[in-house]
Protein backbone atom coordinates (compact mmCIF):
# COMPACT_ATOMS: atom_id res chain seq x y z
CA UNK A 1 0.00 0.00 0.00
CA UNK A 2 2.68 2.49 0.99
CA UNK A 3 4.82 1.66 -2.02
CA UNK A 4 1.79 2.19 -4.18
CA UNK A 5 1.32 5.63 -2.63
CA UNK A 6 4.87 6.72 -3.36
CA UNK A 7 4.43 5.57 -6.93
CA UNK A 8 1.29 7.69 -7.31
CA UNK A 9 3.11 10.66 -5.79
CA UNK A 10 5.84 10.36 -8.37
CA UNK A 11 3.38 10.17 -11.22
CA UNK A 12 1.42 13.19 -9.98
CA UNK A 13 4.56 15.28 -9.47
CA UNK A 14 5.94 14.40 -12.88
CA UNK A 15 2.55 15.26 -14.33
CA UNK A 16 2.70 18.70 -12.69
CA UNK A 17 6.21 19.36 -13.91
CA UNK A 18 4.84 18.62 -17.37
CA UNK A 19 1.86 20.97 -16.82
CA UNK A 20 4.13 23.75 -15.55
CA UNK A 21 6.30 23.27 -18.62
CA UNK A 22 3.32 23.69 -20.92
CA UNK A 23 2.28 26.82 -19.04
CA UNK A 24 5.73 28.41 -19.01
CA UNK A 25 7.13 27.10 -22.27
CA UNK A 26 5.52 29.71 -24.55
CA UNK A 27 7.00 32.55 -22.51
CA UNK A 28 10.40 30.92 -22.23
CA UNK A 29 10.49 30.25 -25.95
CA UNK A 30 9.55 33.89 -26.60
CA UNK A 31 12.38 35.11 -24.37
CA UNK A 32 14.94 32.77 -25.97
CA UNK A 33 13.75 33.71 -29.45
CA UNK A 34 14.08 37.39 -28.72
CA UNK A 35 17.86 36.86 -28.95
CA UNK A 36 17.60 35.28 -32.37
CA UNK A 37 17.81 37.13 -35.70
CA UNK A 38 14.42 38.61 -36.50
CA UNK A 39 14.55 37.63 -40.17
CA UNK A 40 14.94 34.02 -39.10
CA UNK A 41 11.88 34.32 -36.81
CA UNK A 42 9.80 35.81 -39.54
CA UNK A 43 10.64 33.02 -41.93
CA UNK A 44 10.55 30.02 -39.63
CA UNK A 45 8.74 31.05 -36.47
CA UNK A 46 9.89 29.89 -33.06
CA UNK A 47 11.91 26.76 -33.58
CA UNK A 48 13.61 24.09 -31.52
CA UNK A 49 16.47 23.92 -33.95
CA UNK A 50 18.56 27.04 -33.64
CA UNK A 51 22.25 27.71 -33.50
CA UNK A 52 23.56 28.95 -30.16
CA UNK A 53 26.16 31.11 -31.84
CA UNK A 54 23.54 33.18 -33.64
CA UNK A 55 22.02 34.41 -30.36
CA UNK A 56 22.70 38.12 -29.91
CA UNK A 57 21.37 41.28 -28.33
CA UNK A 58 20.67 42.80 -31.73
CA UNK A 59 16.89 43.04 -31.32
CA UNK A 60 17.30 44.80 -27.99
CA UNK A 61 19.95 47.14 -29.30
CA UNK A 62 17.61 47.97 -32.16
CA UNK A 63 14.75 48.75 -29.80
CA UNK A 64 16.90 50.95 -27.57
CA UNK A 65 18.63 52.87 -30.32
CA UNK A 66 16.36 53.01 -33.36
CA UNK A 67 12.77 52.29 -32.43
CA UNK A 68 11.63 55.53 -30.89
CA UNK A 69 7.92 54.84 -31.28
CA UNK A 70 8.23 51.78 -29.06
CA UNK A 71 9.26 53.96 -26.12
CA UNK A 72 6.52 56.41 -26.94
CA UNK A 73 4.00 53.53 -26.67
CA UNK A 74 5.63 52.40 -23.45
CA UNK A 75 5.30 55.88 -22.00
CA UNK A 76 1.66 56.12 -23.10
CA UNK A 77 0.87 52.78 -21.49
CA UNK A 78 2.62 53.81 -18.27
CA UNK A 79 0.79 57.13 -18.08
CA UNK A 80 -2.61 55.66 -18.90
CA UNK A 81 -2.21 52.74 -16.50
CA UNK A 82 -0.99 54.91 -13.64
CA UNK A 83 -3.77 57.46 -14.06
CA UNK A 84 -6.36 54.69 -14.38
CA UNK A 85 -5.14 53.03 -11.19
CA UNK A 86 -5.12 56.28 -9.19
CA UNK A 87 -8.47 57.59 -10.39
CA UNK A 88 -10.35 54.30 -10.39
CA UNK A 89 -9.13 53.34 -6.93
CA UNK A 90 -10.07 56.74 -5.58
CA UNK A 91 -13.63 56.67 -6.93
CA UNK A 92 -14.35 52.96 -6.59
CA UNK A 93 -13.16 52.79 -2.99
CA UNK A 94 -15.37 55.73 -1.98
CA UNK A 95 -18.41 54.05 -3.51
CA UNK A 96 -17.67 50.61 -2.11
CA UNK A 97 -17.01 52.07 1.32
CA UNK A 98 -20.22 54.10 1.37
CA UNK A 99 -22.25 51.06 0.27
CA UNK A 100 -20.80 49.08 3.14
CA UNK A 101 -20.88 51.45 6.11
CA UNK A 102 -23.81 53.81 5.56
CA UNK A 103 -27.49 53.12 5.48
CA UNK A 104 -29.14 55.46 3.02
CA UNK A 105 -32.02 55.58 0.58
CA UNK A 106 -31.11 54.06 -2.77
CA UNK A 107 -28.30 51.94 -1.40
CA UNK A 108 -29.85 48.68 -2.57
CA UNK A 109 -30.57 49.99 -6.04
CA UNK A 110 -27.03 51.34 -6.41
CA UNK A 111 -25.58 48.04 -5.32
CA UNK A 112 -27.83 46.19 -7.74
CA UNK A 113 -26.71 48.43 -10.59
CA UNK A 114 -23.09 47.61 -9.71
CA UNK A 115 -23.92 43.93 -10.11
CA UNK A 116 -25.80 44.56 -13.35
CA UNK A 117 -22.89 46.43 -14.92
CA UNK A 118 -20.57 43.57 -14.03
CA UNK A 119 -22.85 41.32 -16.07
CA UNK A 120 -23.39 43.56 -19.12
CA UNK A 121 -20.88 42.60 -21.80
CA UNK A 122 -18.77 45.61 -22.70
CA UNK A 123 -19.18 44.87 -26.42
CA UNK A 124 -22.82 45.98 -26.43
CA UNK A 125 -21.71 49.39 -25.17
CA UNK A 126 -18.92 49.58 -27.70
CA UNK A 127 -20.62 51.47 -30.53
CA UNK A 128 -22.73 53.86 -28.38
CA UNK A 129 -19.64 54.66 -26.28
CA UNK A 130 -17.61 55.18 -29.42
CA UNK A 131 -20.27 57.54 -30.74
CA UNK A 132 -20.27 59.34 -27.38
CA UNK A 133 -16.49 59.77 -27.52
CA UNK A 134 -16.80 61.24 -31.01
CA UNK A 135 -19.46 63.67 -29.81
CA UNK A 136 -17.40 64.65 -26.78
CA UNK A 137 -14.30 65.09 -28.94
CA UNK A 138 -12.44 62.50 -26.88
CA UNK A 139 -11.30 60.31 -29.78
CA UNK A 140 -7.53 60.08 -29.84
CA UNK A 141 -7.06 61.32 -26.25
CA UNK A 142 -5.86 59.70 -23.02
CA UNK A 143 -9.16 60.68 -21.39
CA UNK A 144 -11.13 58.77 -24.00
CA UNK A 145 -9.11 55.62 -23.35
CA UNK A 146 -9.39 55.85 -19.58
CA UNK A 147 -12.97 56.98 -19.10
CA UNK A 148 -14.76 53.61 -19.32
CA UNK A 149 -12.32 52.09 -16.81
CA UNK A 150 -12.57 54.76 -14.15
CA UNK A 151 -15.45 53.63 -11.98
CA UNK A 152 -14.89 49.91 -12.18
CA UNK A 153 -17.87 47.88 -10.95
CA UNK A 154 -15.72 44.89 -10.02
CA UNK A 155 -13.55 47.14 -7.87
CA UNK A 156 -16.61 48.76 -6.27
CA UNK A 157 -17.90 45.30 -5.43
CA UNK A 158 -14.56 44.19 -4.02
CA UNK A 159 -14.12 47.33 -1.90
CA UNK A 160 -17.64 46.94 -0.56
CA UNK A 161 -17.04 43.35 0.49
CA UNK A 162 -13.79 44.39 2.15
CA UNK A 163 -15.28 47.43 3.90
CA UNK A 164 -18.02 45.25 5.41
CA UNK A 165 -15.36 43.90 7.74
CA UNK A 166 -14.26 47.33 9.00
CA UNK A 167 -14.72 48.04 12.74
CA UNK A 168 -17.54 50.59 12.81
CA UNK A 169 -16.86 51.57 16.43
CA UNK A 170 -13.89 53.50 15.08
CA UNK A 171 -16.27 55.76 13.17
CA UNK A 172 -18.16 56.78 16.28
CA UNK A 173 -14.96 57.33 18.19
CA UNK A 174 -13.66 59.55 15.38
CA UNK A 175 -16.92 61.50 15.25
CA UNK A 176 -16.70 62.22 18.97
CA UNK A 177 -13.19 63.53 18.37
CA UNK A 178 -14.64 65.89 15.78
CA UNK A 179 -13.52 64.12 12.63
CA UNK A 180 -15.64 64.75 9.53
CA UNK A 181 -17.23 61.88 7.59
CA UNK A 182 -14.66 62.37 4.85
CA UNK A 183 -11.82 62.53 7.36
CA UNK A 184 -13.01 59.23 8.76
CA UNK A 185 -12.73 57.65 5.33
CA UNK A 186 -9.48 59.20 4.18
CA UNK A 187 -7.56 59.19 7.44
CA UNK A 188 -8.93 56.24 9.39
CA UNK A 189 -10.72 53.74 7.21
CA UNK A 190 -8.80 53.77 3.95
CA UNK A 191 -5.50 52.89 5.66
CA UNK A 192 -7.33 49.89 7.11
CA UNK A 193 -8.41 48.93 3.59
CA UNK A 194 -4.86 48.96 2.25
CA UNK A 195 -4.70 45.28 1.23
CA UNK A 196 -7.84 45.72 -0.89
CA UNK A 197 -6.25 48.76 -2.52
CA UNK A 198 -3.23 46.66 -3.43
CA UNK A 199 -5.32 43.89 -4.97
CA UNK A 200 -7.43 46.34 -6.96
CA UNK A 201 -4.41 48.38 -8.08
CA UNK A 202 -3.06 45.21 -9.63
CA UNK A 203 -6.36 44.25 -11.23
CA UNK A 204 -6.93 47.71 -12.67
CA UNK A 205 -3.31 48.14 -13.66
CA UNK A 206 -3.24 44.84 -15.49
CA UNK A 207 -6.59 45.51 -17.17
CA UNK A 208 -5.40 48.86 -18.36
CA UNK A 209 -1.90 47.71 -19.37
CA UNK A 210 -3.36 44.84 -21.41
CA UNK A 211 -6.53 46.59 -22.58
CA UNK A 212 -6.99 46.04 -26.28
CA UNK A 213 -10.39 46.45 -27.91
CA UNK A 214 -11.28 49.89 -26.51
CA UNK A 215 -7.96 51.66 -27.20
CA UNK A 216 -8.04 50.04 -30.65
CA UNK A 217 -11.16 52.11 -31.35
CA UNK A 218 -10.27 55.31 -29.56
CA UNK A 219 -6.64 55.87 -30.52
CA UNK A 220 -5.85 56.84 -34.08
CA UNK A 221 -2.36 58.27 -34.17
CA UNK A 222 0.88 56.36 -33.73
CA UNK A 223 2.26 58.69 -31.06
CA UNK A 224 -0.71 57.96 -28.78
CA UNK A 225 -0.74 54.16 -29.22
CA UNK A 226 -0.57 52.04 -26.10
CA UNK A 227 1.78 49.05 -26.09
CA UNK A 228 -0.75 46.39 -27.14
CA UNK A 229 -2.09 48.54 -29.97
CA UNK A 230 1.37 49.52 -31.15
CA UNK A 231 2.64 45.95 -31.07
CA UNK A 232 -0.48 44.75 -32.89
CA UNK A 233 0.31 47.08 -35.79
CA UNK A 234 3.58 45.18 -36.22
CA UNK A 235 1.73 41.86 -36.48
CA UNK A 236 1.67 41.68 -40.24
CA UNK A 237 2.69 38.66 -42.29
CA UNK A 238 4.98 40.85 -44.40
CA UNK A 239 6.32 42.81 -41.45
CA UNK A 240 9.94 43.78 -41.35
CA UNK A 241 9.51 44.94 -37.75
CA UNK A 242 9.93 41.60 -36.05
CA UNK A 243 12.93 42.87 -34.10
CA UNK A 244 10.81 45.49 -32.36
CA UNK A 245 7.87 43.12 -32.12
CA UNK A 246 9.63 40.30 -30.34
CA UNK A 247 12.01 42.23 -28.08
CA UNK A 248 9.17 44.65 -27.38
CA UNK A 249 6.84 41.82 -26.39
CA UNK A 250 9.38 40.52 -23.91
CA UNK A 251 9.83 43.95 -22.39
CA UNK A 252 6.06 44.32 -22.05
CA UNK A 253 5.69 41.29 -19.81
CA UNK A 254 8.96 41.36 -17.84
CA UNK A 255 7.93 44.25 -15.51
CA UNK A 256 4.65 42.51 -14.77
CA UNK A 257 6.31 39.20 -13.97
CA UNK A 258 8.74 40.98 -11.64
CA UNK A 259 5.83 42.72 -9.89
CA UNK A 260 4.06 39.38 -9.68
CA UNK A 261 7.00 37.75 -7.91
CA UNK A 262 7.02 40.48 -5.27
CA UNK A 263 3.29 40.96 -4.77
CA UNK A 264 1.99 37.50 -5.56
CA UNK A 265 -0.70 37.50 -2.91
CA UNK A 266 -2.34 40.68 -4.20
CA UNK A 267 -2.18 39.50 -7.77
CA UNK A 268 -4.01 36.33 -6.85
CA UNK A 269 -6.67 38.23 -4.89
CA UNK A 270 -7.08 40.90 -7.52
CA UNK A 271 -7.34 38.62 -10.51
CA UNK A 272 -9.51 36.04 -8.78
CA UNK A 273 -12.00 38.79 -7.97
CA UNK A 274 -12.06 40.45 -11.29
CA UNK A 275 -11.38 38.24 -14.23
CA UNK A 276 -14.91 38.12 -15.52
CA UNK A 277 -13.61 37.16 -18.93
CA UNK A 278 -13.30 33.74 -20.46
Amino acid sequence: MRKNNIFIKWIVNIFFVFVALIALFPLISLIVSSFRPSSELMRNGISFSFVWSELSLRNYIHIFTESSSYWQWYGNSLIISTLTIVLSLFFSSMVGYALAVYKFKGRTIIFLSVLIIIMIPFEILLLPLYQLMINLNLINTYTGVMLPLIVAPVAVFFFRQYAMGLPLELMDAARIDGCTEYGIFFRIMSPLMLPSFAAMAILQGLNSWNNFLWPLLVIRSNDLFTLPIGLATLLTPYGNNYDTLIAGSVMTIIPIIILFIFFQRYFVEGLASGSVKG
Partner: peptide
Protein backbone atom coordinates in the same frame (compact mmCIF):
# COMPACT_ATOMS: atom_id res chain seq x y z
CA UNK B 1 3.55 28.68 -12.98
CA UNK B 2 -0.04 28.07 -14.04
CA UNK B 3 -0.99 31.62 -13.17
CA UNK B 4 1.75 33.52 -15.01
CA UNK B 5 0.16 33.22 -18.50
CA UNK B 6 -2.80 35.24 -17.17
CA UNK B 7 -0.41 38.20 -16.88
CA UNK B 8 0.49 38.30 -20.56
CA UNK B 9 -1.46 40.61 -22.78
CA UNK B 10 -3.46 39.10 -25.60
CA UNK B 11 -1.13 40.69 -28.15
CA UNK B 12 1.95 39.04 -26.67
CA UNK B 13 0.04 35.75 -26.55
CA UNK B 14 -0.77 36.31 -30.21
CA UNK B 15 2.88 36.94 -31.09
CA UNK B 16 3.88 33.71 -29.36
Amino acid sequence: ALFIPALTSIVVAGVI
